[in-house]
Design a binder for these strands. Structure first.
Lengths: 346, 346
DNA sequence: CGGTTACATGTAAGCGGTTACATTCGAGGA
DNA sequence: TCCTCGAATGTAACCGCTTACATGTAACCG
């Protein structure tokens, strides 16, 4: 295979100079139409494709947007990614992806990427930065936008869901249905990555209960690792107690699915014996009819990317913070507390 | 914000030449330990990060692997992507992603990417190339590996699932349970992207039936667009006929979920009235207990990426074709044809 | 003690584009 | 006819790094 043609080969073959070829191919106005025509033909003939590295070096831009995302294959992440891709599809930027599943990777990426000349823009999804990271980012001049990372990002542009509002929404829905013994099952509030969604959703839960004159004491709260099986176990033990809740608010759909499994194992009928509401509105909710709180994942990705594109063009004087309001999606797992529930609970 | 430090700044500050800095930072053996030490310190002090564009241009490598994937957010794709990421995580390569959801995008990407100097390697997932694409790829010297693309890829390195075998596996399972009226619901056999999985799985289905002395006539076959709702509608009309099938093999889990929904709508109990088996083993299968054929998605992505890395190091004389055998995963949606099914079918 | 050797470092030529600035040339105006 | 001006093109510097080759130096040899 012959070496690929360079701009020089095209110039020679077309009988013009490098500069003219470059201009012609980049649509500069100052090229004679006939010349341009000829150059384009020669370029096609030689199958000329400009070296991106050279172009980027010369331009001083990477033409690249880097997305650092935690747990790429969680359904939430994939959906956000699609939103990001949609916003970037018609731009000149390539999309580079770094997947983070361990704290070490996280640190490694933040340290090497938070630097100019690696990328034109950094989009961090579901991954709150450490104080050090923030300093580094502020010192470097890489445009960066955070999506779904509350902690430590208040001085930076970001797109957030309102988890507290969502927690209230879910809980209020259960209260409106007449439930009084409402439990919360979610992720541990402190975790190596600094995720805050579980804590915030719980806070919304708490507020709704307090507003309704109920207390959010610990007996109906169970926290554990993120995962369906973990949630199932938590729910199983919670549902085996004598004053078991009539409704459970799960901090994520994944966990809500675990709760459903536990209910099934115990022979509890949903929603007659137990109401369940989740959070996120992942695809599986539709399959199983799970009532949940929709996060607008695609939209959050899209807006994050748009914000970043805007930042790249011109740094905003004061960092924007876009908040996306969650919305409740009613399906078949919530209902007023039923007779059967009352009958069994004694 | 001051301009970022270049290698020149480091050299000046450390009192050595460019070359020495480059050598020191790239771990060349021919640098005095003390000098190296000093350079590293200065580099840190200045927060020096080499320009990747410059490095790449100079090295003549892009250090980039490009993945072109169709329908990024289908659960299958996300899982494969994770496999790819896993194989690449410890390599020097960045992962660039192009998502394809329209035929135009497909063509555009194939045309611009099938060229050297854009990427060191191309991994194409679930996207069969056209004849033109193949020619272009063969002419260019970009290492390329196809994952999950049967059509037109026989002269190229690839990783495939054996869809025919999987189709047989699924159908044989139903036959073994005692079913005789077994239907197939899948994607249309011809489609703009040239996907062949539905056709091949059907072929496996047909073979199994023929081997069992049954004919695979058209009455129990329904094809439509990929999607849960489409499959639900197909299943609904199929299940309303008088000699309705006692088992349905769906060409994908997504469609199997639609079949389950249709059964529920019609008041049919699964698996007593109807057995359902899917294909792929996406996460949702576990939620709903769907019996299915597992494709080893993560593994296919991982092996594809490994094959590509090998191709980059040294082009194989004869293109490798890795076939991953599917495996049946038994859950709760298949059972012998029940009395109730028999009772209702007349 | 001159010469070879090995190691450490410097010099400078690329890598393949973009673009500021210089040059050429023909048209139009005085 | 000479000059000015603008359009079209050429020349060459530069982007920031790697690396072949040249150079310098100290140790070691006969």
């Amino acid at each position: 295979m012959p070496k690929r043609a360079t701009i020089r080969d095209v110039a020679m073959r077309a009988g013009v100079s490098l500069a003219t070829v470059s201009r012609a191919l980049n649509g500069s106005a100052l090229v004679n139409a006939a010349t341009k025509q000829r150059i384009v033909e020669v370029a096609e003939e030689l199958e000329f494709a400009p070296s991106l590295s050279a172009r980027r070096l010369s331009l001083g831009k990477t033409q690249t947007i880097t997305v650092v995302v935690s747990f790429l294959t969680r359904p939430q992440a994939a959906e956000r990614l699609r939103g990001i891709d949609a916003a970037l599809a018609d731009s000149e930027f390539d999309l580079v992806i770094y997947n983070v599943e361990t704290v070490e990777k996280r640190n490694q990426y933040f340290q090497t990427l938070a630097l100019r000349q690696r990328t034109d823009g950094l989009l961090v999804v579901s991954l709150p930065p450490s104080d050090d990271d923030v300093h580094r980012l502020e010192r470097s001049d890489v445009p960066v936008v955070f999506v779904d990372a509350h902690e430590n990002t208040d001085r930076l542009p970001r797109v957030l869901g309102d988890d507290v509002a969502g927690g209230e929404l879910a809980t209020q829905h259960l209260l409106d249905l007449g439930h009084r013994r409402i439990a919360y099952i979610g992720d541990a509030f402190v975790n190596p990555f600094g995720f805050t969604s579980s804590r915030d959703r719980f806070e919304g839960y708490r507020r709704a209960l307090v507003r309704a004159g109920l207390d959010a004491a610990g007996e109906h709260v169970a926290l554990g690792a993120h995962g369906r099986y973990e949630a199932r176990d938590l729910a199983a033990s919670m549902l085996s107690q004598r004053d078991r809740p009539t409704a459970i608010f799960a901090g994520s759909d994944t966990q809500a699915l675990g709760v459903l499994a536990a209910a099934q194992d115990l022979g509890l009928h949903v929603p007659d014996d137990l109401s369940v509401i989740g959070y996120d509105d992942i695809e599986a909710c539709d399959f199983v009819g799970l009532t949940t709180v929709r996060q607008h994942l695609f939209e959050s990705g899209r807006q994050g990317a748009q914000l970043l594109l805007a930042e790249i063009v011109e740094r905003a004087e004061t960092p924007q913070s876009v908040v996306i309001q969650p919305e409740i999606v009613l399906r078949r797992t919530t209902a007023p507390p039923g007779r059967r529930a009352a009958a069994r609970s004694d």
